[in-house]
Amino acid sequence: MLNGKTSPNFKRSVFLTESAYYGGKLNYQSFCGDITKIAIQLRQLIQNKGITGYKTAGNWAAFTFMTDTIPANSYKPFTYDFDDFTGIKDWSKQFVTKLLKTHSGNCHSLPFLYKIICEEIGSKAFLALAPNHVYIKHLDEKNQWTNVELTNPGFPRDQWIIKEMAISVEAIKKNIYMNPLTEKESVAMTMFDLACGYKSLFGYDKFVLQVSNTALKYYPKCVPLVQLRANCLLSMINKEKKKTKPDTAILFANIALHKRAMADVNQLGYKDMPIELYRDWVQSVEKEKKKRGLIKSNNQQPIQK
């Protein structure tokens, strides 16, 4: 898809990365069937609402499907899964296939599914990045960009995102955050997932580096990929150092590559969002959901309807 041999297909890209994690055991026809079923119901919802003439009808339908209590989602809206929301212990927590089964996900799987559904209906939805976060952008009826947040359903303004995500002025000037991704950049993001899934199973090695380098050719300003490449090189350096007889040629080559990778990180103007701040933001989502009655205050489980 990236080299032009096949047209970009975000739905298939997402499936391929998730299936690879499970050793190729997922069924693409079944996955497509689930998405098609949703699309059929949402097209009917749009028709019943009488809004087929609006270009954002598909966006409204996808948002309604994911956040409201309606027959199409079996009266069970999609909620935030606070258990291992970064996928450190279990990378499959990031998966759209997991989200479809459980109706609970995170700031990775929720916008991914929204984009897949919109494209299945024939509407446009674009991924956008913030520190440790993914959300959606789409053009409204006046052709102005609208932000769509699915962790705490709403339509935040750019100023809110900048403040809550602690995005620096330099990062904004370098255009590393808050821009709608192209289709190839979105596919490159799924390659980040492919590399992370592999890393969670087997650790860092040349495969992670190969995937990162390939994806970065098509999305050079992707902070998660740049970080992943730097972390992979550092891990490979440390592994070589621990050997009884380190290969100095390999060691010095990887050290040089790591210095270059860190220079790329610094050149982009990237600064870590403090983990405490991110935790606070995630907890604010939880508090807001409690206020809206989406989770019980005693055990934080979704209310069954």
Rank of each mutant, 00 (worst) to 15 (best):
A171C: 05
L181K: 09
E185S: 06
I176L: 00
N175D: 12
F192N: 05
M189W: 02
I167P: 03
A166D: 14
K184F: 07
T182F: 03
K174C: 02
I167G: 00
Y177V: 00
I162D: 05
T190G: 05
K174D: 01
F202T: 07
F207C: 03
I161K: 08
M178D: 04
P180K: 14
F202C: 09
V169Q: 15
I176W: 00
I176A: 01
L209D: 11
V211K: 04
P180W: 14
E170W: 04
T182A: 10
L181T: 02
K206V: 07
I167Y: 02
F192L: 10
G203Q: 11
Q210I: 10
L209R: 10
K199S: 12
I172V: 12
L209P: 01
M178C: 11
T182V: 10
V169I: 14
K173A: 06
C196R: 15
K163H: 13
V169N: 13
I161W: 00
D205C: 02
M189S: 06
I167E: 01
G203R: 09
V208L: 04
E164R: 10
T190F: 06
K163F: 07
E164V: 13
K206R: 09
L209W: 02
K199T: 15
E164A: 11
M189C: 08
V169E: 13
N179F: 05
V187Q: 04
N175G: 05
K184V: 10
K173Y: 08
Y198A: 04
P180A: 12
D193L: 14
N175P: 03
